[in-house]
Structures are given as structure tokens and as C-alpha cells.
Simulated assay, not measured.
Amino acid sequence: MRIGELSERTGTPRRMLRYYEEQGLLVPGRASNGYRDYAEGCVDRVLQIRGLLDSGLPTRIIKQVLPCIDDPAAIHISGATAETIATLERERDSMAHRIRCLLRSHEAIVGYLEVVRRDQLPSAGVPAVRYRRADSVTEAA
């Protein structure tokens, strides 16, 4: 299949597919006219790459992990080197840190929305607080 069809089937922009190729993550064949020719299996490969990128793995790690993926739901590494294991452990720890940061941000936004929604519902006869600054409070009339 040509790059346009792969792009359409995976929802991945053509430019991103070319980037995957530059990074060695995707290897298309070439038609006699020089156009990229992607095998059917490239659809799954692109979806795996996108999933790994979405999980926060950088392309240099994805390049190491992709050959070890037989099943998109699992990673099987046989004969992993100490370097590969150390790299994956660092990535795992980095992901855990990002998850903790995201959870804190999520909780802050939830709390902020609760305050904003509460303040937008005026009680009978009591003005609603529209916003707060460190030095003043502006109320609705």
C-alpha cells in the first residue's frame, strides 16, 4: 500500500510516517517507480509505535523494543542485555514520575473546577464571588 493509504488506515499523518522511517521504526519497500510500498503488517506496526509513543517512550527506546513485540499487548525480550534492562528501568521510573505529576495536576484542576462551579452558583441574597486575587475579591452585584 502507498503512504496515503497507510496514513488513512492508521490516522497517522504522512509526515509522521516518514519520521518513523527516518528513525528506523518503519521500513517500507520501494515500488519500481520509487514510491514507498508498505506491507499490510505496517498497519499494526504503526499502531504499536503510536501506542508506545503515547505511553511516553522515546523513539530510541521504541527502536529497541519493537523487535521484541510479538503480541501488541505484551513485550517479550529474550536475551536482553544489561543495558537494555537498565534503559527500560529508567524509562519505567521516568514514567512513574510523570504519572505522579499528572495525578497532582489532575487533582489541582478538579479542585479548581469545584471552587469555580461553587462560586458561580449564588446563594439566595448572597453575591457570588467571580474571581479572587491575592490582594482583593471582586463580587458580582
Rank of each mutant, 00 (worst) to 15 (best):
M16A: 05
Q23R: 13
E8S: 09
E83C: 02
A82K: 02
V46D: 00
G29T: 10
R2Y: 08
Q64K: 15
T59E: 04
S105Q: 13
G11P: 02
R118N: 11
S55C: 15
R15Y: 07
I62G: 02
R9G: 06
K63N: 03
D44I: 04
R98L: 01
I49H: 01
R9I: 00
L47T: 12
R117H: 14
P72I: 01
A31N: 05
G34R: 10
E40F: 07
E89W: 01
M95H: 08
P127T: 10
S94R: 06
T59W: 00
R117V: 13
G125V: 10
T87V: 13
R100M: 05
R18D: 05
T10E: 09
E83D: 15
L121P: 09
P28A: 07
E22L: 07
D93V: 03
Q64N: 12
G51W: 04
Y19R: 01
A128M: 11
V65K: 12
A108V: 08
A73Y: 11
Y19Q: 10
E107S: 07
V65G: 10
G24K: 06
E89R: 15
V116G: 09
A128R: 13
P13C: 08
I109Q: 13
E89N: 09
G34A: 04
K63E: 12
S78N: 15
Y112W: 06
L102T: 04
G79C: 05
D71I: 03
L57R: 10
R15L: 02
E40N: 01
P127K: 12
R9M: 04
L103H: 10
I49V: 12
E91F: 00
V129P: 09
A39M: 12
C42Q: 03
I85F: 01
D54F: 12
R117F: 13
I77M: 15
A108P: 00
I3Q: 02
V115M: 11
E8D: 09
T84M: 13
G51H: 06
S55H: 13
S105T: 09
C42H: 11
A108C: 05
Q48D: 09
L25H: 07
V126L: 14
R14V: 14
R118G: 13
S94M: 03
G56M: 05
D44Q: 08
E8C: 08
N33F: 05
L26G: 01
I75R: 02
G125S: 15
E40P: 04
E107H: 11
A80C: 08
L102W: 02
I85N: 07
R2V: 00
R98N: 04
L53V: 14
V129R: 15
Y19T: 08
A73D: 12
V46L: 00
P13S: 07
Q23K: 11
R98V: 03
G51Q: 12
E91S: 14
T59S: 14
L66K: 05
V27E: 00
A73W: 13
G29Y: 08
R98I: 05
S55M: 14
R60N: 14
V110N: 10
S32T: 05
L88Q: 03
H76L: 07
P13L: 14
V65N: 11
R30T: 03
P28E: 06
P122C: 13
S123M: 13
S94W: 03
R117G: 07
D93A: 09
Q48F: 00
E83H: 11
G4D: 14
L103T: 10
Q120T: 15
G125D: 15
L6V: 04
A96Q: 09
G34M: 06
L102P: 00
S32N: 01
R36Y: 07
P28Q: 00
D119Y: 08
A86S: 14
